[in-house]
């Protein structure tokens, strides 16, 4: 089992909460982790693992911090 921290950003916060501590099975992907908390927007999402860009299919490691957010903008 691995423990990861998932943080949501932008409009996702209002829908899925600010952050979650998750325990997942070995081999779980970032996408699996996000599905666990209800985030299933695979077409319109940016994921970052330990401050570096990542893909939903990337395998999670113990202690990872993931940030997921829609690719918003602003001023």
């Amino acid at each position: 089992m691995i423990s990861v921290r998932v943080e949501l950003g932008g409009p996702f916060r209002e829908r899925f909460g600010h952050w979650h501590a998750l325990t997942l099975g070995e081999g779980a992907t970032i996408g699996d982790g996000l599905k666990r908390i209800g985030v299933n927007e695979d077409l319109y999402i940016v994921v970052v693992r330990n401050s570096e860009r990542a893909e939903l299919s990337d395998i999670l490691k113990d202690g990872d911090t993931v940030v997921a957010f829609p690719p918003v903008g602003g001023g």
């Binding site: 943080e7 932008g10 940016v46 401050s51 957010f69 918003v72 602003g74």
Partner: peptide
């Protein structure tokens, strides 16, 4: 003028 998106996550590569 603020630079960037404020509290919105921003991880440029």
């Amino acid at each position: 003028k603020g630079i960037g998106f404020g509290v919105l996550p921003d991880y440029p590569a």
